[in-house]
Design a protein around this nucleic acid. Structure first.
Lengths: 200, 200
DNA sequence: CGTTCGTTTGACCAGTTGGTCAAATATAAC
DNA sequence: GTTATATTTGACCAACTGGTCAAACGAACG
């Protein structure tokens, strides 16, 4: 029988994960400390370690949650749908995720920049398989002339890089744009770019 | 009169900066230690601090060097040249910089993700001015019908994000592409994307 | 009210961290 | 070769780090 969690447990674990996300996403794993996370969470350090066995465990829990949500949109692409519409749907979803969960995006960025010590296997495994499958679909669209000839891998990188850029480089984007809200024009530009790239 | 540096000074300072770049670019400022840098440099920790007054000084020196090289290509854009050719020239230069100096790109990424504590002012100052000027040029091209209507800021973000993606997310890119060298198709895709986006 | 069990914390520990310093060792100058 | 100067390092320090633990606290339940 699975241990039933008390409401205090549920609340505090959530608080700790939120604090961990805040700190890890800014400073990476090595640059973050339990004291910082405890401070943000409003709990004492030993109390943190009452709910999670180690700093590592907090980090790994966050990454696992992240990857789950990260993968879902890829699988939602419908090979039978309209090519441009499907790609646009995926790209816009990704953009919205960057808007709504910038900390998760930065956590991921930190992990990758460090060489993906924790999620390297997922990248080579599940993620790679998903994108290889997607590439087959896109190549099919290309072969039947439904989209312009385009490299599926670099198409995906274009979408990933631009959408994540708004989250990861938020400070730079806002500095360059001054007072203008970046997200207002972002979706329009993304759609325009992909339509031009894909429409025959 | 400026103190003349001995050859040992020049050599060791260069060695330390190279080691610092290696370490800082992977772990960020907080996640890096003088011991790690000393190890990579093949020098003792006190010896590091003989050439640089502090960890902070090494980091700041690296960022200053980086920003100098980072800004140059922007100024090289010729408002009088052919619009598409000028943008392509800039984008390809950026791509080549990501290929040749991935550590510099990751160092920059780490600094921005952390909220740009060191270079925030440069972003709001010199960088912003340069991109505002560029935006005027691009808007001119749009107004005279020489390129498709495009938001200059988001155009720049597209170029920055994609080119830096190949450096910063190198591990992910290679994992997804398997054995294929990412850089082979990257330039072709970048050119194709920008031509489609800009050509009237 | 008292027992039980989940929760919280102060004190503590060993290893790491950025940085100092005096002494030892190279190198260069005369 | 001797002196002056530049370089290198072992030993050290205070603050920080991840983690432990026994004791204290709190709420629920009979």
């Amino acid at each position: 029988m699975p241990k039933t969690k008390t409401r205090i447990q549920k609340k505090n674990e959530a608080t700790i994960l939120a604090a961990g996300l805040e700190v890890f996403s800014q400073y990476g794993f090595r640059g973050s400390t339990l004291d910082m996370i405890a401070e943000v969470a409003g709990l004492s350090k030993p109390n943190l370690l009452y709910y999670f066995p180690s700093k590592d465990a907090i980090y790994k829990t966050l990454l696992a949650q992240l990857l789950e949500n990260w993968m879902k949109p890829v699988y939602a692409i419908d090979a039978g749908g309209d090519p441009v519409a499907e790609i646009l749907k995926y790209a816009k979803l990704k953009l919205r995720m960057s808007q709504d969960f910038p900390r998760e995006s930065r956590l991921f960025a930190n992990e990758i920049i460090q060489g993906a010590p924790q999620i390297g296997e997922v990248l080579h495994g599940e993620l790679r398989r998903a994108i290889v499958d997607l590439a087959v679909v896109v190549n099919g669209w290309v072969a039947t002339g439904r989209v312009r000839p385009v490299d599926p891998y670099h198409l995906v990188f274009s979408i990933w890089s631009l959408t994540q850029h708004y989250a990861d480089f938020d400070v730079q984007v806002r500095a360059v744009m001054g007072g203008t809200d970046p997200m207002i024009g972002a979706e329009q530009h993304l759609e325009d770019m992909l339509r031009q790239l894909l429409t025959v």
